[in-house]
Design a protein around this nucleic acid. Structure first.
Length: 306
DNA sequence: AAGCTCACCAACCGCTCTGTA
DNA sequence: GTACAGAGCGGTTGGTGAGCT
């Protein structure tokens, strides 16, 4: 109803971000912090809507993001939290450090939903799904009232047991908010330990800025970066050497995780690890957004970082 | 090899919430 | 109390790659 668009869309770029744009955005935020998103694109020299910049930053460029697939434990957490909070992805994400609401939402829609359905659990209600009529044991009454099968199939029973245990807790949201911090991050069982999450010390992954050499990259570029193709990341992301910035409100308010040890994730964005043996002198050809979780799944972490 | 289908996920859209004057 | 702007959120879309025929 005549609501003003969030920005003047005329002449604004849409679609996938280029390395150049990423560089500008990162550079700007590192220098100035996260200020007014609406003004940011102009100040940073981007032809993007402020909203788009915020999304790009929070969902992809933020250095504290944990890359890679959700672990079993994280998945369980998501299921648990979804049972309690519903589709409040940002709330759920707030309990999973390094994960974004978008990421969790996507993972839910593409993986967990299916998984739960397969297990006979309604992803909406987290209750057992009624069996299809063919599989349903003939109820003696069959009077038309909806029948819900409460007898899960054997292979499902353990998980359903877990879920129902979770449901049984029935933690009210207010309690949840306080209890979550202390309890939820403890492993549910012994199958998960933090070792599954790549914990990388800076000295393990920081790569000295070696002079660019041409290397045969395994990059199977899937993104729309400029026709240049083999531009090195040093050319694409030249903000790295200017890390003498001072803690600003950005860090103080939002990014206090960026202590010395936590440059790892940003370094990871900057430095390539495709070839373990060469990693210390790696030359990067892969554009920034190439580091999608597709190539940063747990396997890659193990292979390339350890 | 080509065409088709499906899965995945980054990005967009539009609504809601929040803070401020 | 109201209006407005900016930020945040959740649903949806569209591009891309993988797998299959």
């Amino acid at each position: 109803m005549g609501r003003q668009p969030c920005c003047d869309k005329v002449g604004l770029k849409k679609g996938p971000w280029t390395a150049e744009e990423d560089k500008k955005l990162i550079n700007f935020i590192l220098t100035n912090g996260q200020c007014c998103w609406r003004a940011l694109p102009k100040l940073a020299g981007l032809l993007r809507c402020g909203k788009s910049c915020r999304l790009r930053w929070t969902n992809y460029l933020r250095p504290d993001l944990k890359r890679g697939l959700l672990s079993e434990y994280e998945e369980n957490m998501v299921i648990d939290l979804h049972a309690k909070l519903g589709n409040r992805w940002s709330k759920i994400a707030s309990h999973l450090p390094g994960r974004t609401d978008n990421e969790i939402k996507n993972h839910w829609n593409t993986h967990i939903k299916k998984k739960l359905k397969k297990m006979g659990i309604d992803p909406l209600t987290h209750k057992p799904l009624p069996l299809p009529p063919a599989d349903r044991p003939r109820p003696p009454e069959e009077k038309g009232e909806p029948t819900i099968n409460h007898q899960p199939e054997p292979e499902h029973s353990s998980i359903l047991c877990d879920i129902s245990e979770i449901l049984d807790q029935n933690v009210k949201e207010s309690e949840l908010e306080t209890s979550m911090q202390s309890s939820l991050f403890e492993p549910i069982d012994n199958e998960f330990c933090t070792d599954e999450v790549p914990l990388v010390e800076p000295h393990e992954i920081l790569v000295p800025c070696a002079p660019p050499t041409t290397s045969s990259s395994s990059s199977s570029s899937s993104c729309s970066y400029g026709a240049g193709g083999s531009t090195s990341i040093h050319e694409q992301l030249q903000f790295l050497p200017t890390f003498d910035w001072q803690p600003c409100d950005l860090i103080a308010n939002n990014m206090d995780f960026w202590d010395d040890d936590d440059f790892t994730s940003l370094s990871f964005l900057i430095n390539d690890h495709h070839d373990d043996s060469d990693s210390r002198n790696a030359t990067v050809e892969t554009p920034l957004t190439q580091y999608s979780r597709t190539i940063l799944d747990e396997e890659c972490w193990k292979l390339e970082l350890l």
